[in-house]
Amino acid sequence: MSRIARAFNEKAKIAYLTAGDGKNSYEYFLALEEAGVNILEIGIPFSDPVADGPTIQLAMERSIQNGTNLNSIFDIIKQIRIKSEIAIVLFTYYNLIQKNLAEFLQKAKQSGADGILVVDLPIEEACEFRFLCKKYQLDAIMVASPSTSLERIESLTTYGSGFLYYACFKGTTGIRDELPNDLIEKVSAMKQYSKLPIAIGFGVSNNKMVKQILNIADGCVIGSYLVKLIESNYNLEEFKNLAKEVFKC
């Protein structure tokens, strides 16, 4: 059983951080595991992240300033793997990996990644990506959004593997206080068509939202809220406690 499948044996708690933001970013990822997280989403910074809101944009800018590139990302994964068997998903924009796609996926696998999510690669353009993910035994994580039709949910979960990431708000990533009103109906309809577990993310930033999501879905993703903690310079211990607090259920 893959690490990602194992994480979904219970409710999956998924945490995103931009790699290379802050010093020794692998320590923050490890702290997240101690806080109860069972899937790590490692964001690769891109200069023009159109699907991300201001918090993650700034984190990406800081990370690029720190000199983060694909090799340093692989190093971060390897450092996490020395200590942990937690599931790892890489989160990227396509321009960063398209030139040497096969080599990137092979290295990602060798470093210890379990899945890849490419934000700007819809299934129509993902033919080769999907084949190569299968070849290198990586899950190709697909994203669904509020505008995705139910018919398309079926295709997304046939094309993809691991889990379906439901980005539940229109717009970009970023902290929000409440979940959309129609989330329960949406998700129960999606479940009829999805062949994969469904994790919900986008905007999740407090414990109440986490609990609500885990009641109706198989997993919950928190991103901007955690990135903001890094931006606010919390030390490792404080970061871990706040992460534990928000994911508690």
């Binding site: 159109v50 699907a51 396509y94 934000v119 700007d120 690669l121 819809p122 129509e124 353009e125 697909m142 994203v143 669904a144 959004s145 509020p146 505008s147 995705t148 039709s149 398309r152 997304l156 980005a167 229109k170 717009g171």
Partner: peptide
């Protein structure tokens, strides 16, 4: 159909595919 020879396509986030 979304290409001009080797170039073009629709590399957009899922949210924009329907619009």
């Amino acid at each position: 159909p979304t290409y001009y020879g080797r170039f073009g396509g629709q590399y957009a986030p899922e949210l924009l595919i329907t619009p």
